[in-house]
């Protein structure tokens, strides 16, 4: 079932430099989406538009068929979406439990424990946790909210491989078991491969890739890189 729809969305910085050139796509509940693309291609901008952090220059973003610009961006952010950032973005004077309670009325400890934090860690200052633990808190905050859409910007960018794999698994589980729509912006092909749908943003346009397309692109890049090295 479609939960979000992007209709002919265009976006230009300062009204001049066009980074998104009429994007159309639909996103369903219970699926994990990965958006790939080179740096500066507009991935994070697209995620911001989906999350109501910014407004498109033209076009519409629909949540359950309703234009979020009309229902209110703040309301969209509060009720429909939850963000996970590369730099975690936790509030530094709150404990993990309090950070989770920021957007949720549910008891935070069970969710944090589910994501691998101990009760003692859940009461520490967030800055005293490792990067992986902080990202778990950020994910717990997103999952604890009522939001049906989780928007993650490079969620594993600052993490080691093992931790990144664990975080990816958690996000995948959120989509498949909790029925959330998870949209991840990433550079990582490994993470993208785990997604149900892989989208590539290139020259302002969005196209769907299969895993084999992704592997082909990756091998082409490797060959080009080796050639250059010789």
């Amino acid at each position: 079932m479609n939960i979000m729809e992007i209709q002919n969305v265009q976006y230009a910085y300062d009204g001049k430099k066009k980074v998104l050139k009429g994007i159309n796509t639909q996103m369903e509940q219970g699926k994990m989406y990965a958006i790939l693309g080179p740096s500066g291609c507009g991935k994070t901008t697209l995620l911001s538009l989906l999350g109501g952090l910014d407004s498109p220059t033209s076009g519409q973003i629909l949540y359950q068929g309703e234009d979020i610009a009309k229902t209110g961006l703040a309301d969209h952010r509060r009720s429909h979406v939850a963000f996970i950032f590369q730099s975690y973005n936790l509030i530094d004077y709150l404990t993990p439990m309090e950070n989770v309670a920021l957007t949720s009325k549910l008891p935070p400890l069970p969710i944090l424990e589910q994501l691998g934090l101990t009760a003692e860690e859940a009461k520490r200052n967030v800055l005293k946790l490792s990067g992986g633990q902080q990202q778990r808190v950020a994910i717990a905050r997103a999952l604890a909210s009522d939001a049906q859409v989780i928007l993650a910007d490079e969620p594993t960018g600052n993490l080691d491989e093992d931790t990144a794999a664990e975080i990816t698994a958690i996000l995948k589980e959120s989509a498949h078991k909790s029925g959330k729509c998870v949209v991840i912006v990433t550079h990582s092909n490994e993470l993208a491969k785990e997604a149900d749908v892989i989208l590539q943003l290139r020259r302002g346009e969005l196209q769907t890739l299969s895993v084999s397309d992704l592997e082909e692109t990756a091998s082409q890049k490797r060959r080009a890189s080796q050639k250059n090295q010789r």
Binding site: G51, L53, A74, D75, H76, R77, R78, S79, A82, F83, N89, L90, I91, D92, L102, T103, R141, S145
Partner: peptide, 14 residues
């Protein structure tokens, strides 16, 4: 500023 951004992203109004 960071905190303000986080709170706004969490849907808390200005």
């Amino acid at each position: 500023k960071r905190e303000t951004g986080i709170l706004l992203a969490a849907g808390i109004s200005k």
